[in-house]
Design a protein around this nucleic acid. Structure first.
Lengths: 248, 248
DNA sequence: AAACTTAGTGTAAAATTTACACTTTGAAAA
DNA sequence: TTTTCAAAGTGTAAATTTTACACTAAGTTT
């Protein structure tokens, strides 16, 4: 039993983040372009999710925070693990193997990735390249094509976690600014859920959840132009509570 | 940037399974006792979740299946990843460090664990020790005390995933035999959810979901003794469907 | 044979969901 | 400068679902 482990190298463990952002009308994902530095003979403009190998002395969550901090300067945002990914090395795409060899840090071990997903309000932060990233960009979720490694799998997993969460938890607020109109929130839900939600029912139901607090300019009965603004009123959220974010 | 990786050993990656079983009245978890083999001078009867290091050439899911197969002989059961766990090595309990040293396979690297959870019908399978396990036992979930490593964290995570799933997916059937009465299903839900569900509403609601199919002895209007039996009728399950397993 | 438990059906009030209509205000078009 | 239009907001009635109970019949236990 023991002997079998001795001959196999431990896998490299990396953390990759799916960072979703919303610009008011479209759902975006933060992607980076790999930077080969001194191996410039290799032509590789593959896009990947921002990620890095985990450090010896840090928690998994800490690693994810670190990566995000490096690229966006953000601390303390919504960030949650979505799971571990990683097929044996023999299943890697050639392009990715070349890349791994080029950076010489992973000679004979596979890579296992812990995926995280994060929600940020795009307008609040400036992105900047860091680590192995040559460029950082916000890409429209619907236009994302083939990514490096198994990052499409991770992205798909993240979007379904996001949709699922949006149904069940007051999590969409993270994608908007501090103050927002119900119209903005509605647009967000409609975009992400791909649905065709009734505007009026959405409004009533969302207000009834108790997660919205009016800002000072509130005045009953008067239609506003521009729209009335709300903030997210954090209240204790019971997982099994009746707060229900399903909209038909 | 590069240099920083060179000096750190890759972490060991293990897969640990939380296997839930139901014996008709109580929820059980499959635990194992560590076996130190030739290091018998060390007295350690700590209980842990069944797990093993992942092999170089296998998928994460494959590893989980392998472990389960070894301990219970089961293949093809409900098995799902719940996430990755693992704090830096310095946070390990002393007892666990001693154990890791004793088996000599992990000299200076940390351990990262991918947690899985599985649901089985206890009566269908005989368990047997395998790998590093000295004993295998089904322990009452409510009586579980301190486990080795961070396995209590994993177990807690698994139970909340289970409760959550039970609300939203027809997953409880996995814990029962092929044929079961509504009373058995009711007992299961009541036990796991810790709730106090109305028997009559449970019955009606569960039948309405369309996941139950009557067995041949079915006869309308006649109270049965013993109870009428059902099987789980797999039908396409739409995540966003209206099937609702919340019972109050 | 009386008392009790289990299996099953019924029903009515309360709450929620759904599918719409209608008003007011500011901005854009004519 | 009207006229037209879209956005912001409130209302309401039918359909469905949830909740909280009552009741009967068939075995089992005492």
């Amino acid at each position: 039993m023991k002997e079998k482990y001795v001959n196999q190298a431990n896998p490299n463990v990396s953390v990759d983040c799916v960072v979703f952002g919303f610009d008011g009308s479209d759902l975006k994902v933060l992607l980076v372009q790999r930077d080969l530095r001194d191996n410039l003979d290799i032509d590789d403009d593959t896009l990947v999710l921002p990620g890095d190998l985990i450090n010896d002395d840090e928690d998994l969550d800490e690693a994810a925070s670190r990566i995000l901090k490096g690229l966006t300067g953000i601390k303390n945002i919504f960030l949650e693990q979505i799971g571990a990914f990683g097929s044996p090395k023999r299943l890697l795409k050639k392009r990715d193997q070349v890349w791994l060899n080029a950076i010489r840090i992973l000679p004979n071990a596979r890579v296992i990735t812990i995926g995280y997903f994060a929600l940020v309000n795009i307008k609040n932060y400036k992105t900047k390249p860091a680590g192995f990233a040559k460029h950082v960009l916000w890409q429209d979720y619907n236009t994302v094509e083939e990514l490096g490694f198994d990052h499409n799998v991770i992205l798909n997993s993240a979007i379904s976690v996001l949709r699922d969460k949006l149904y069940r938890e007051p999590v969409g607020f993270q994608l908007l600014g501090k103050e927002f109109s119900l119209h903005q929130l509605y647009t967000l839900y409609n975009e992400i859920m791909g649905g065709d939600i009734d505007r009026r029912n959405f409004r009533r139901k969302m207000l009834k959840t108790g997660f919205l607090k009016e800002t000072e300019n509130y005045q009953e009965g008067v239609p506003h132009k521009p729209a009335r603004l709300y903030t997210f009123a954090k209240k204790k959220f019971d997982n099994v509570s009746k707060a229900n974010f399903k909209f038909y």
